[in-house]
């Protein structure tokens, strides 16, 4: 409780209350509910790809086994650990925002962003390798090592789902950057004003959540 921002709050650090909300509590609740609704649509977006995965895996189990064994498990595991750890720092940012320690909030988000960049760099190397050897979707598949019926479909699912996930990583980075800059510059997060940190962090956890499922589905089984 040593931070200067914390002592200054009380009246000053309260977020603006929109006229149509009865109280700040109701406004926060509405914001949170809206975020959950948005995350539900995101989950269903990825579910479509999971259904593709399920159907084609059912039809071409040998191609799926061969395809998943051709991926680099070490890179996948490192990426999983990186993403889980970035989720931890995002959660800690909410923790510090509630305490009004804006500097720590900024540092936690900076660490999260650093790990997000790391994730994307590793992903780039994986993609580059696949473009090099030719394990690509559809008619662009030209890898001699694995010639099983349905193998291009495995890589269609692989590229669609990981690319959509990587796109979410980039969006999440943009959201967290805004919150990070605000924590460093405006320093107005506190026990009554942390909705932005909380919802941004929720988005980041969703990115982590999707990867938690994609990783074993693509790399392990």
């Amino acid at each position: 409780m040593q931070s200067s921002a914390h002592t200054a709050d009380g009246a000053e650090n309260l977020p603006r209350l929109a006229g149509h909300f009865a109280s700040l509590e109701v406004q926060n609740h509405a914001a949170r509910l809206g975020m959950w609704l948005f995350l539900a649509t995101e989950i269903l977006l990825f579910a479509g790809l999971f259904v593709c995965y399920g159907c084609y895996r059912f039809l071409y189990p040998e191609a799926w086994a061969a395809g998943s064994r051709s991926l680099d498990l070490t890179m996948g595991t490192v990426n999983t650990i990186v993403l889980i750890t970035s989720s931890l720092t995002a959660a800690l940012a909410v923790h510090y925002a509630k305490e009004g320690e804006n500097k720590k909030v900024g540092v936690m988000f900076a660490l999260t962003l650093l790990m997000a960049v790391g994730f994307l760099v590793i992903k780039y190397f994986e993609y580059a390798h696949k473009f090099h050897i030719g394990t690509l979707p559809g008619r662009y598949y030209h890898y001699e090592g694995i010639q099983v019926t349905g193998i291009p479909l495995y890589f269609t699912v692989y590229f669609c789902s990981t690319a959509l996930h990587a796109f979410h990583v980039v969006i999440g980075m943009a959201v967290l950057s805004v919150a990070m800059v605000r924590a460093f510059r405006k320093k107005d997060f506190g026990p009554k004003n942390y909705t932005m940190v909380e919802l941004g962090s929720m988005y980041w956890h969703l990115v982590d959540l999707v990867w938690i499922f994609l990783f074993p589905m693509l790399y392990l089984v």
Partner: peptide
């Protein structure tokens, strides 16, 4: 409300998987 939204989305994911399979 939040739990309901999340629970329903998971239910739909399961339905979407089970019916095509």
């Amino acid at each position: 409300a939040n739990r309901l939204v999340f629970g329903v989305s998971i239910l739909f994911v399961v339905l979407m998987l089970v019916i095509p399979m």
